[in-house]
Computed example of a mutant assay.
Amino acid sequence: MKSVTKYYSNGEVTIVWQNEKCIHSTVCWKNSTGLPDVFNPKDRPWIKPEAAETAAIIEQVKKCPSGALSFFMNADVAQNAAPEAPETQPETQVQSETIIELAPKGPLMVYGNVVIKDADGKETRKSKVTALCRCGASANKPFCDGSHTKIDFQG
């Protein structure tokens, strides 16, 4: 999957979306958990930040389990300079125990600081929430890419 980062702004806040991190949890757009007026994967563009108050958008983005959604305040950029790309921002270190949760029909959700070492010894550090593939179909292993939905994973 080609890595794509997109920016959507309402003039006050800019929402950043990174496709390769997205696990398609639906937390952002489902009526019961999200802001469907702002986040609607059936529309183009699929993010419409002008459809809600900035505070509501920020709270919703903070709920993203994969970190595919992030945000920055435009006033901070105007005062300082261009924001760092999300992938180069320093990781937030969680000061708590690590918790692993099985998402129904989905990935292993790992909450906390983790270091993942691949077969070549390359280390990837993650904090906050990391979604690990459980279905075996991800093109971004060991991370989840939402393929469990496409294959109707029942684990």
Rank of each mutant, 00 (worst) to 15 (best):
V27L: 08
D43Y: 03
W17Q: 01
Q79M: 12
E84T: 11
K122Q: 05
F71T: 00
A78P: 00
P41I: 08
A51V: 08
F72H: 04
N80P: 10
C22L: 07
N10T: 14
E53I: 02
G121I: 10
W46N: 01
L108W: 13
E87F: 05
S9L: 12
A85D: 15
E59Q: 13
Q93T: 06
S25N: 03
E59T: 09
E91F: 08
G106Q: 12
E97N: 15
I116A: 06
V114W: 00
V27P: 01
K42N: 09
Q18N: 07
P49V: 11
K122V: 11
I57G: 04
D118I: 11
Q89W: 03
F71H: 07
I15W: 13
Y111K: 14
W29I: 11
R44V: 06
G121K: 03
K122H: 06
K105A: 11
V27N: 11
F39M: 03
K62Q: 13
T92G: 00
A68E: 02
E91R: 15
I58Y: 03
N74Q: 12
Q95G: 05
D43N: 12
A82K: 07
A75P: 00
K62E: 13
H24Y: 12
T26M: 05
T92D: 05
P90S: 08
N80F: 06
G11W: 14
N31T: 07
T33K: 15
Q18S: 07
G34S: 02
E12H: 08
A82S: 06
D120T: 03
I47Y: 03
I15E: 12
D43E: 11
A51F: 04
F72P: 01
N19F: 01
A68W: 06
P83W: 09
Q79R: 04
W46Y: 10
S9C: 07
K62N: 13
A82W: 01
V114H: 12
F39T: 08
